[in-house]
Nucleic acid binder design. Structure first.
Lengths: 221, 221
DNA sequence: GCTTGTGAAGACCTTCACAGCA
DNA sequence: TGCTGTGAAGGTCTTCACAAGC
Protein backbone atom coordinates (compact mmCIF):
# COMPACT_ATOMS: atom_id res chain seq x y z
CA UNK A 1 0.00 0.00 0.00
CA UNK A 2 3.01 2.22 -0.39
CA UNK A 3 2.47 4.98 -2.86
CA UNK A 4 5.63 5.47 -4.79
CA UNK A 5 5.85 8.86 -6.32
CA UNK A 6 7.14 12.29 -5.78
CA UNK A 7 6.83 14.07 -2.52
CA UNK A 8 5.36 17.55 -2.05
CA UNK A 9 8.80 19.00 -1.53
CA UNK A 10 11.69 17.86 -3.66
CA UNK A 11 12.89 15.27 -1.15
CA UNK A 12 13.54 11.86 -2.56
CA UNK A 13 11.06 9.37 -1.26
CA UNK A 14 10.24 5.88 -2.37
CA UNK A 15 13.17 5.03 -0.13
CA UNK A 16 12.43 1.60 1.36
CA UNK A 17 11.45 1.79 4.97
CA UNK A 18 14.08 -0.82 5.86
CA UNK A 19 16.68 1.65 4.68
CA UNK A 20 15.25 4.38 6.88
CA UNK A 21 15.34 1.97 9.80
CA UNK A 22 19.06 1.35 9.26
CA UNK A 23 20.28 4.90 8.83
CA UNK A 24 20.04 5.82 12.52
CA UNK A 25 22.28 2.87 13.25
CA UNK A 26 24.83 4.12 10.77
CA UNK A 27 24.58 7.50 12.42
CA UNK A 28 25.23 6.02 15.82
CA UNK A 29 28.32 4.15 14.73
CA UNK A 30 29.64 7.14 12.84
CA UNK A 31 29.16 9.30 15.94
CA UNK A 32 31.21 6.86 17.97
CA UNK A 33 33.90 6.81 15.31
CA UNK A 34 34.00 10.56 15.15
CA UNK A 35 34.35 10.73 18.91
CA UNK A 36 37.14 8.20 18.62
CA UNK A 37 39.02 10.33 16.16
CA UNK A 38 38.49 8.16 13.09
CA UNK A 39 38.53 10.22 9.91
CA UNK A 40 37.76 7.83 7.09
CA UNK A 41 35.77 4.63 6.99
CA UNK A 42 35.00 2.10 4.27
CA UNK A 43 31.70 0.34 3.74
CA UNK A 44 33.57 -2.82 4.64
CA UNK A 45 34.53 -1.50 8.08
CA UNK A 46 31.11 -0.01 8.75
CA UNK A 47 29.53 -3.27 7.74
CA UNK A 48 31.59 -5.28 10.16
CA UNK A 49 30.55 -3.09 13.06
CA UNK A 50 26.90 -3.35 12.14
CA UNK A 51 26.73 -6.93 10.92
CA UNK A 52 25.59 -5.72 7.52
CA UNK A 53 27.14 -6.36 4.12
CA UNK A 54 29.24 -3.58 2.60
CA UNK A 55 27.07 -3.66 -0.52
CA UNK A 56 24.03 -3.00 1.58
CA UNK A 57 25.56 0.07 3.11
CA UNK A 58 26.65 1.43 -0.24
CA UNK A 59 23.23 0.75 -1.71
CA UNK A 60 21.47 2.39 1.21
CA UNK A 61 23.58 5.51 0.91
CA UNK A 62 23.09 5.61 -2.86
CA UNK A 63 19.40 6.42 -2.33
CA UNK A 64 20.47 9.82 -1.11
CA UNK A 65 23.65 10.75 -2.91
CA UNK A 66 27.28 9.94 -3.53
CA UNK A 67 29.10 10.48 -0.33
CA UNK A 68 32.21 8.37 -0.77
CA UNK A 69 35.51 8.59 -2.55
CA UNK A 70 36.76 5.67 -4.59
CA UNK A 71 39.75 4.02 -3.08
CA UNK A 72 39.36 5.89 0.23
CA UNK A 73 35.91 5.33 1.62
CA UNK A 74 33.78 7.89 3.44
CA UNK A 75 34.75 10.89 5.47
CA UNK A 76 33.26 10.12 8.89
CA UNK A 77 32.41 13.67 9.83
CA UNK A 78 30.98 14.51 6.44
CA UNK A 79 28.89 11.40 6.09
CA UNK A 80 27.57 11.81 9.62
CA UNK A 81 26.46 15.34 8.89
CA UNK A 82 24.77 14.29 5.66
CA UNK A 83 22.92 11.42 7.27
CA UNK A 84 21.77 13.52 10.17
CA UNK A 85 20.37 16.09 7.81
CA UNK A 86 18.64 13.44 5.70
CA UNK A 87 17.02 11.92 8.76
CA UNK A 88 16.05 15.24 10.30
CA UNK A 89 18.43 14.63 13.16
CA UNK A 90 20.37 17.84 12.75
CA UNK A 91 17.74 19.65 14.76
CA UNK A 92 15.69 19.33 17.92
CA UNK A 93 12.22 17.84 18.22
CA UNK A 94 9.57 18.69 20.74
CA UNK A 95 7.91 15.71 22.33
CA UNK A 96 4.75 15.40 24.39
CA UNK A 97 4.27 12.60 26.89
CA UNK A 98 0.86 11.18 27.72
CA UNK A 99 0.65 9.24 30.95
CA UNK A 100 2.74 10.07 34.00
CA UNK A 101 2.27 6.90 35.98
CA UNK A 102 5.22 4.74 36.94
CA UNK A 103 6.24 4.18 33.35
CA UNK A 104 5.76 7.80 32.33
CA UNK A 105 7.96 8.97 35.18
CA UNK A 106 10.66 6.51 34.20
CA UNK A 107 10.52 7.95 30.70
CA UNK A 108 10.73 11.51 32.01
CA UNK A 109 13.78 10.66 34.06
CA UNK A 110 15.53 8.81 31.25
CA UNK A 111 18.54 10.90 30.35
CA UNK A 112 18.99 9.48 26.84
CA UNK A 113 16.49 11.58 24.92
CA UNK A 114 17.72 15.14 25.31
CA UNK A 115 21.30 14.59 24.10
CA UNK A 116 19.85 13.23 20.87
CA UNK A 117 17.63 16.25 20.39
CA UNK A 118 14.35 14.86 21.70
CA UNK A 119 12.94 17.21 24.29
CA UNK A 120 9.92 16.18 26.31
CA UNK A 121 8.39 19.57 26.96
CA UNK A 122 4.88 18.68 28.02
CA UNK A 123 3.20 15.93 30.03
CA UNK A 124 -0.46 15.00 30.09
CA UNK A 125 -2.60 12.69 32.15
CA UNK A 126 -6.28 11.90 32.36
CA UNK A 127 -6.18 11.49 36.13
CA UNK A 128 -7.41 14.71 37.82
CA UNK A 129 -5.28 13.88 40.86
CA UNK A 130 -2.15 14.14 38.76
CA UNK A 131 -3.10 17.20 36.73
CA UNK A 132 -1.43 20.25 38.19
CA UNK A 133 1.33 18.32 39.89
CA UNK A 134 4.91 18.86 38.87
CA UNK A 135 6.66 15.70 37.74
CA UNK A 136 10.13 15.71 36.25
CA UNK A 137 10.14 19.49 35.98
CA UNK A 138 6.92 19.43 33.99
CA UNK A 139 3.52 20.64 35.05
CA UNK A 140 1.13 17.79 34.31
CA UNK A 141 -1.69 19.00 32.14
CA UNK A 142 -5.18 17.79 31.43
CA UNK A 143 -5.98 15.89 28.29
CA UNK A 144 -8.39 18.70 27.44
CA UNK A 145 -5.42 20.92 26.85
CA UNK A 146 -3.71 18.49 24.52
CA UNK A 147 -4.68 20.13 21.26
CA UNK A 148 -3.87 23.65 22.42
CA UNK A 149 -0.53 22.76 23.95
CA UNK A 150 0.59 20.63 21.01
CA UNK A 151 0.06 23.57 18.71
CA UNK A 152 1.43 26.22 21.04
CA UNK A 153 4.63 24.35 21.82
CA UNK A 154 5.06 22.93 18.33
CA UNK A 155 5.05 19.34 19.51
CA UNK A 156 5.47 16.90 16.66
CA UNK A 157 6.09 13.62 18.46
CA UNK A 158 3.95 11.89 21.05
CA UNK A 159 4.96 9.27 23.57
CA UNK A 160 2.19 7.09 24.95
CA UNK A 161 2.68 5.63 28.41
CA UNK A 162 -0.85 4.89 29.53
CA UNK A 163 -2.48 1.57 30.45
CA UNK A 164 -3.21 -0.62 27.43
CA UNK A 165 -6.94 -0.14 27.55
CA UNK A 166 -6.55 3.60 27.08
CA UNK A 167 -3.72 3.53 24.59
CA UNK A 168 -5.69 3.43 21.36
CA UNK A 169 -7.86 6.31 22.54
CA UNK A 170 -4.80 8.37 23.37
CA UNK A 171 -3.22 7.53 20.01
CA UNK A 172 -6.40 8.66 18.28
CA UNK A 173 -6.35 11.92 20.24
CA UNK A 174 -2.74 12.53 19.28
CA UNK A 175 -3.44 11.88 15.61
CA UNK A 176 -6.41 14.26 15.79
CA UNK A 177 -4.01 16.93 16.99
CA UNK A 178 -1.93 16.42 13.87
CA UNK A 179 0.82 14.37 15.50
CA UNK A 180 2.48 12.23 12.83
CA UNK A 181 4.96 10.26 14.91
CA UNK A 182 4.04 8.25 17.98
CA UNK A 183 6.11 6.08 20.27
CA UNK A 184 3.83 3.77 22.21
CA UNK A 185 4.81 1.72 25.22
CA UNK A 186 1.47 -0.03 25.35
CA UNK A 187 1.37 -3.72 24.51
CA UNK A 188 -1.29 -3.41 21.82
CA UNK A 189 -1.46 -3.46 18.04
CA UNK A 190 -2.20 0.21 17.43
CA UNK A 191 -4.44 1.31 14.60
CA UNK A 192 -2.82 4.23 12.83
CA UNK A 193 -4.02 6.56 10.13
CA UNK A 194 -2.26 6.89 6.82
CA UNK A 195 0.73 9.17 7.05
CA UNK A 196 1.22 8.54 10.76
CA UNK A 197 4.22 6.57 11.96
CA UNK A 198 3.82 4.51 15.09
CA UNK A 199 6.58 2.56 16.81
CA UNK A 200 6.09 0.27 19.74
CA UNK A 201 8.30 -0.42 22.70
CA UNK A 202 7.17 -3.81 23.84
CA UNK A 203 9.63 -5.93 25.81
CA UNK A 204 7.24 -8.84 26.22
CA UNK A 205 6.63 -9.05 22.50
CA UNK A 206 10.38 -8.95 21.96
CA UNK A 207 10.83 -11.88 24.32
CA UNK A 208 8.01 -13.75 22.67
CA UNK A 209 9.69 -13.51 19.28
CA UNK A 210 12.74 -15.35 20.63
CA UNK A 211 11.26 -18.32 22.43
CA UNK A 212 10.47 -20.03 19.15
CA UNK A 213 14.16 -20.45 18.54
CA UNK A 214 14.76 -21.66 22.07
CA UNK A 215 12.14 -24.35 21.94
CA UNK A 216 12.53 -25.56 18.38
CA UNK A 217 16.14 -26.51 18.91
CA UNK A 218 16.76 -24.62 15.71
CA UNK A 219 20.33 -23.96 14.71
CA UNK A 220 19.39 -20.83 12.85
CA UNK A 221 21.08 -17.54 13.42
CA UNK B 1 5.22 -26.18 2.90
CA UNK B 2 8.86 -25.74 1.99
CA UNK B 3 11.23 -27.78 4.09
CA UNK B 4 14.57 -26.06 4.00
CA UNK B 5 16.68 -28.42 5.94
CA UNK B 6 15.63 -30.38 8.94
CA UNK B 7 16.05 -29.40 12.53
CA UNK B 8 17.43 -31.66 15.29
CA UNK B 9 13.94 -32.33 16.54
CA UNK B 10 11.15 -32.76 14.08
CA UNK B 11 10.11 -29.11 14.18
CA UNK B 12 9.77 -27.40 10.82
CA UNK B 13 12.21 -24.58 10.50
CA UNK B 14 13.17 -22.48 7.54
CA UNK B 15 10.21 -20.41 8.64
CA UNK B 16 10.96 -16.81 7.71
CA UNK B 17 11.88 -14.70 10.69
CA UNK B 18 9.24 -12.11 9.74
CA UNK B 19 6.65 -14.79 10.28
CA UNK B 20 8.03 -15.59 13.71
CA UNK B 21 7.89 -11.89 14.52
CA UNK B 22 4.20 -11.75 13.66
CA UNK B 23 2.95 -14.82 15.47
CA UNK B 24 3.14 -13.29 18.96
CA UNK B 25 0.92 -10.50 17.68
CA UNK B 26 -1.61 -13.02 16.46
CA UNK B 27 -1.42 -14.69 19.83
CA UNK B 28 -2.09 -11.44 21.60
CA UNK B 29 -5.16 -10.62 19.54
CA UNK B 30 -6.49 -14.14 19.85
CA UNK B 31 -6.07 -13.94 23.63
CA UNK B 32 -8.12 -10.78 23.70
CA UNK B 33 -10.77 -12.35 21.53
CA UNK B 34 -10.91 -15.44 23.70
CA UNK B 35 -11.30 -13.26 26.77
CA UNK B 36 -14.06 -11.42 24.93
CA UNK B 37 -15.93 -14.63 24.26
CA UNK B 38 -15.33 -14.75 20.51
CA UNK B 39 -15.38 -18.34 19.26
CA UNK B 40 -14.54 -18.17 15.58
CA UNK B 41 -12.48 -15.69 13.58
CA UNK B 42 -11.64 -15.36 9.90
CA UNK B 43 -8.31 -14.32 8.46
CA UNK B 44 -10.16 -11.26 7.21
CA UNK B 45 -11.18 -10.18 10.70
CA UNK B 46 -7.80 -10.98 12.23
CA UNK B 47 -6.14 -9.02 9.46
CA UNK B 48 -8.24 -5.95 10.11
CA UNK B 49 -7.27 -5.90 13.75
CA UNK B 50 -3.59 -6.26 12.94
CA UNK B 51 -3.37 -4.20 9.78
CA UNK B 52 -2.20 -7.21 7.86
CA UNK B 53 -3.70 -8.79 4.76
CA UNK B 54 -5.80 -11.93 5.21
CA UNK B 55 -3.58 -13.75 2.72
CA UNK B 56 -0.58 -13.00 4.86
CA UNK B 57 -2.17 -14.50 7.90
CA UNK B 58 -3.24 -17.63 6.06
CA UNK B 59 0.21 -18.00 4.55
CA UNK B 60 1.92 -17.49 7.89
CA UNK B 61 -0.22 -20.15 9.51
CA UNK B 62 0.33 -22.53 6.62
CA UNK B 63 3.98 -22.86 7.59
CA UNK B 64 2.85 -24.79 10.61
CA UNK B 65 -0.30 -26.63 9.71
CA UNK B 66 -3.90 -26.35 8.66
CA UNK B 67 -5.81 -24.84 11.50
CA UNK B 68 -8.90 -23.41 9.81
CA UNK B 69 -12.16 -24.65 8.43
CA UNK B 70 -13.36 -23.52 5.03
CA UNK B 71 -16.36 -21.30 5.20
CA UNK B 72 -16.03 -20.78 8.97
CA UNK B 73 -12.56 -19.54 9.78
CA UNK B 74 -10.49 -20.47 12.81
CA UNK B 75 -11.53 -21.60 16.24
CA UNK B 76 -10.07 -18.91 18.49
CA UNK B 77 -9.28 -21.14 21.43
CA UNK B 78 -7.81 -23.88 19.29
CA UNK B 79 -5.67 -21.62 17.14
CA UNK B 80 -4.42 -19.78 20.21
CA UNK B 81 -3.33 -23.04 21.81
CA UNK B 82 -1.59 -24.18 18.64
CA UNK B 83 0.28 -20.93 18.19
CA UNK B 84 1.37 -20.80 21.80
CA UNK B 85 2.77 -24.27 21.54
CA UNK B 86 4.55 -23.49 18.28
CA UNK B 87 6.15 -20.42 19.78
CA UNK B 88 7.07 -22.09 23.04
CA UNK B 89 4.66 -19.84 24.88
CA UNK B 90 2.68 -22.61 26.51
CA UNK B 91 5.28 -22.81 29.26
CA UNK B 92 7.32 -20.60 31.59
CA UNK B 93 10.79 -19.24 30.94
CA UNK B 94 13.39 -18.33 33.51
CA UNK B 95 15.05 -15.01 32.96
CA UNK B 96 18.18 -13.48 34.42
CA UNK B 97 18.64 -9.72 34.69
CA UNK B 98 22.04 -8.10 34.52
CA UNK B 99 22.21 -4.56 35.86
CA UNK B 100 20.09 -3.37 38.76
CA UNK B 101 20.54 0.36 38.37
CA UNK B 102 17.59 2.64 37.76
CA UNK B 103 16.62 0.87 34.57
CA UNK B 104 17.11 -2.61 35.99
CA UNK B 105 14.88 -1.80 38.93
CA UNK B 106 12.19 -0.47 36.61
CA UNK B 107 12.37 -3.76 34.73
CA UNK B 108 12.11 -5.75 37.94
CA UNK B 109 9.05 -3.84 38.99
CA UNK B 110 7.35 -4.11 35.61
CA UNK B 111 4.34 -6.33 36.15
CA UNK B 112 3.98 -7.35 32.51
CA UNK B 113 6.48 -10.19 32.32
CA UNK B 114 5.20 -12.77 34.79
CA UNK B 115 1.65 -13.07 33.44
CA UNK B 116 3.15 -13.99 30.09
CA UNK B 117 5.35 -16.65 31.61
CA UNK B 118 8.63 -14.75 31.83
CA UNK B 119 9.97 -15.00 35.35
CA UNK B 120 12.96 -12.95 36.36
CA UNK B 121 14.48 -15.22 38.98
CA UNK B 122 17.98 -13.83 39.30
CA UNK B 123 19.64 -10.42 39.24
CA UNK B 124 23.30 -9.62 38.75
CA UNK B 125 25.44 -6.52 39.00
CA UNK B 126 29.12 -5.77 38.72
CA UNK B 127 28.95 -3.13 41.45
CA UNK B 128 30.13 -4.63 44.79
CA UNK B 129 27.97 -2.11 46.62
CA UNK B 130 24.87 -3.62 45.08
CA UNK B 131 25.83 -7.26 45.38
CA UNK B 132 24.10 -8.80 48.39
CA UNK B 133 21.34 -6.23 48.50
CA UNK B 134 17.76 -7.30 47.96
CA UNK B 135 16.05 -5.52 45.12
CA UNK B 136 12.62 -6.46 43.89
CA UNK B 137 12.60 -9.61 46.01
CA UNK B 138 15.85 -10.77 44.46
CA UNK B 139 19.21 -11.06 46.09
CA UNK B 140 21.62 -9.24 43.78
CA UNK B 141 24.49 -11.52 42.84
CA UNK B 142 27.99 -10.98 41.61
CA UNK B 143 28.87 -11.41 37.97
CA UNK B 144 31.24 -14.15 39.05
CA UNK B 145 28.25 -16.26 39.93
CA UNK B 146 26.62 -15.80 36.56
CA UNK B 147 27.62 -19.09 35.04
CA UNK B 148 26.76 -21.17 38.10
CA UNK B 149 23.42 -19.53 38.70
CA UNK B 150 22.36 -19.67 35.06
CA UNK B 151 22.89 -23.40 35.06
CA UNK B 152 21.46 -24.05 38.50
CA UNK B 153 18.29 -22.11 37.91
CA UNK B 154 17.89 -23.16 34.28
CA UNK B 155 17.91 -19.60 33.01
CA UNK B 156 17.56 -19.43 29.25
CA UNK B 157 16.93 -15.75 28.64
CA UNK B 158 19.05 -12.76 29.64
CA UNK B 159 18.01 -9.14 30.01
CA UNK B 160 20.77 -6.57 29.80
CA UNK B 161 20.25 -3.29 31.62
CA UNK B 162 23.77 -2.01 32.11
CA UNK B 163 25.42 1.18 30.81
CA UNK B 164 26.20 1.07 27.09
CA UNK B 165 29.92 0.77 27.55
CA UNK B 166 29.52 -2.47 29.47
CA UNK B 167 26.72 -3.94 27.40
CA UNK B 168 28.76 -5.86 24.85
CA UNK B 169 30.87 -7.39 27.56
CA UNK B 170 27.80 -8.52 29.43
CA UNK B 171 26.28 -9.92 26.26
CA UNK B 172 29.47 -11.87 25.65
CA UNK B 173 29.37 -13.22 29.18
CA UNK B 174 25.77 -14.33 28.76
CA UNK B 175 26.55 -16.06 25.49
CA UNK B 176 29.47 -17.82 27.12
CA UNK B 177 27.03 -19.21 29.68
CA UNK B 178 25.03 -20.72 26.88
CA UNK B 179 22.24 -18.12 26.85
CA UNK B 180 20.65 -18.09 23.42
CA UNK B 181 18.14 -15.26 23.79
CA UNK B 182 19.03 -11.79 24.99
CA UNK B 183 16.95 -8.67 25.43
CA UNK B 184 19.20 -5.65 25.57
CA UNK B 185 18.19 -2.18 26.68
CA UNK B 186 21.55 -0.68 25.75
CA UNK B 187 21.67 1.71 22.80
CA UNK B 188 24.37 -0.18 20.93
CA UNK B 189 24.60 -2.47 17.91
CA UNK B 190 25.33 -5.74 19.68
CA UNK B 191 27.60 -8.33 18.17
CA UNK B 192 26.01 -11.72 18.57
CA UNK B 193 27.23 -15.22 17.90
CA UNK B 194 25.50 -17.55 15.46
CA UNK B 195 22.53 -19.22 17.02
CA UNK B 196 21.96 -16.44 19.53
CA UNK B 197 18.95 -14.16 19.21
CA UNK B 198 19.32 -10.61 20.42
CA UNK B 199 16.55 -8.03 20.53
CA UNK B 200 17.02 -4.41 21.44
CA UNK B 201 14.77 -2.06 23.31
CA UNK B 202 15.89 1.33 22.14
CA UNK B 203 13.42 4.18 22.34
CA UNK B 204 15.82 6.74 20.93
CA UNK B 205 16.47 4.63 17.88
CA UNK B 206 12.72 4.20 17.45
CA UNK B 207 12.25 7.95 17.52
CA UNK B 208 15.12 8.42 15.09
CA UNK B 209 13.47 6.15 12.53
CA UNK B 210 10.41 8.40 12.45
CA UNK B 211 11.85 11.87 12.05
CA UNK B 212 12.72 11.20 8.42
CA UNK B 213 9.03 11.13 7.64
CA UNK B 214 8.37 14.25 9.67
CA UNK B 215 10.98 16.31 7.93
CA UNK B 216 10.63 15.09 4.37
CA UNK B 217 7.00 16.05 4.15
CA UNK B 218 6.51 12.60 2.78
CA UNK B 219 2.98 11.37 2.28
CA UNK B 220 3.98 7.77 2.78
CA UNK B 221 2.22 5.55 5.22
C1' DG C 1 -23.04 -18.50 0.31
C1' DC C 2 -18.27 -17.95 2.71
C1' DT C 3 -13.39 -18.97 3.90
C1' DT C 4 -9.25 -21.74 3.85
C1' DG C 5 -4.81 -23.33 1.91
C1' DT C 6 -1.61 -22.82 -1.69
C1' DG C 7 0.79 -22.71 -6.19
C1' DA C 8 2.03 -18.93 -9.12
C1' DA C 9 2.95 -14.21 -9.82
C1' DG C 10 4.56 -10.14 -8.35
C1' DA C 11 6.87 -6.81 -5.47
C1' DC C 12 10.48 -5.87 -2.85
C1' DC C 13 15.04 -6.09 -0.92
C1' DT C 14 19.77 -7.85 -0.94
C1' DT C 15 23.81 -9.29 -3.06
C1' DC C 16 26.78 -9.69 -6.88
C1' DA C 17 30.15 -8.08 -9.81
C1' DC C 18 32.36 -4.73 -12.31
C1' DA C 19 33.14 -0.16 -14.58
C1' DG C 20 35.04 3.92 -13.05
C1' DC C 21 37.96 6.60 -10.52
C1' DA C 22 41.39 8.23 -6.82
C1' DT D 1 45.98 -0.91 -5.66
C1' DG D 2 41.54 0.01 -3.10
C1' DC D 3 36.97 1.35 -2.83
C1' DT D 4 32.67 3.45 -4.46
C1' DG D 5 28.30 3.48 -6.99
C1' DT D 6 25.15 0.84 -9.55
C1' DG D 7 22.80 -2.01 -13.09
C1' DA D 8 21.61 -6.76 -13.12
C1' DA D 9 20.82 -10.99 -10.86
C1' DG D 10 19.21 -13.45 -7.19
C1' DG D 11 16.49 -14.42 -3.22
C1' DT D 12 12.91 -13.64 -0.06
C1' DC D 13 8.49 -12.18 1.29
C1' DT D 14 3.80 -10.69 -0.02
C1' DT D 15 -0.19 -10.82 -2.67
C1' DC D 16 -3.15 -12.84 -6.00
C1' DA D 17 -6.51 -15.88 -7.40
C1' DC D 18 -8.80 -20.04 -7.36
C1' DA D 19 -9.73 -25.04 -6.34
C1' DA D 20 -11.53 -27.36 -2.53
C1' DG D 21 -14.65 -27.84 1.06
C1' DC D 22 -17.79 -26.48 4.83
Amino acid sequence: MVIRGSTPMGMPSGVPEVVIMRLPQYIRILSEMLAGGVEMVSSQQLGEMLQVTPAQIRKDLSYFGRFGKQGRGYNVKGLLAELKEIMGLDRSWNVGLVGVGRLGRAILSYPGFAPEGFHIIAAFDADPNLVGRVIGNLNVQSMNELDTVVKELDISIGIVAVPSRHAQGVIDRLMDCGIKAILSYAPIAPQGQAGVKIRNIDPVLSLQTMTFYLSSGSAED
